[in-house]
Amino acid sequence: MANIPQRIVHEYLRHDKKFPHVWCAGCSNGIVLGAIIRAVASLNIDRNDIVMVSGIGCSSRMPVYVDFNTLHTLHGRSIAFATGVKLHKPHLKVIVVTGDGDCAAIGGNHLIHAARRNIDLKVVMINNNIYGMTGGQCSPTTPHNAYATTAPYGNIEPDFDICNLAMGAGATFVARTTAFHVQEMQSMIKEALQHPGFSLIEVVSACPVIYGRLNKKGGAAQMLKDFRDNSLPLAAVEKLPPEKVEGKIIRGILRKEIRPEFTAEYAALCKRVQTERGE
């Protein structure tokens, strides 16, 4: 297989599905799917050893198109299903693709407990700031004063910082990037796939059709340009004064540490009890 980005992606797609895919023109979900596929391909992992789990939402349509083992599950419960898969077959690499509403609102509890257990799941959270599939309702990550169909005069709630939430809950690999920084995203997914423990990658992405239209953000290309101009890498943030950092998206690996992993601990427990009982 030649090292051509688009050809690698085409190799991994399910060609019996209906293409072009269902996402709107300019939606970042396709960019993220491409980055995930290229990250998997660059590590030479057998596609039968990858499980992609998703819930409900725009981004959760992703496993339908890609030729891994896939599970398309209940709204918000993707991490719960993925925990089951991982515990039963610990050698599999489990990637959870989820949206901001799916992960932070309905599945918020599953997220924090999976992070606390440090189970080896790779959660790619695509944050488009809105519930895109159901018509643009306000999600937990809709910024303050932004518009949504359920917030026609502006959102009065403060938004959720999912990376901080995951770090507070004890996730061992937390990273944030934007849909524009594809190569960075690809290397982060690659690093997360090699990391033993719960990994969360937040991808700030563009929903040009609903969020962009309601908030007058311009088209898809303009939204990606905004990500390029309004984001800062973590290394630059430490050198800049705080007033220049305010309102910017901070990209980079925010935490990487090693802690005992849940499935390994569980296997060790089983072994210990079996030896104690002489089985």
């Binding site: 030649a2 051509i4 980005p5 688009q6 050809r7 992606v9 085409h10 797609l13 072009p20 895919h21 996402w23 300019g26 939606c27 970042s28 979900n29 396709g30 960019i31 491409g34 980055a35 524009f180 594809v182 190569q183 898809a220 990606l224």
Partner: peptide, 19 residues
């Protein structure tokens, strides 16, 4: 540069040198 390859959400363009 393969920018279009990576940023295309629909996998519909390639600018790769090798074919």
């Amino acid at each position: 540069c393969e920018n279009c390859d990576r940023l295309c959400p629909d996998f519909a363009i390639t600018g790769a040198k090798e074919r």
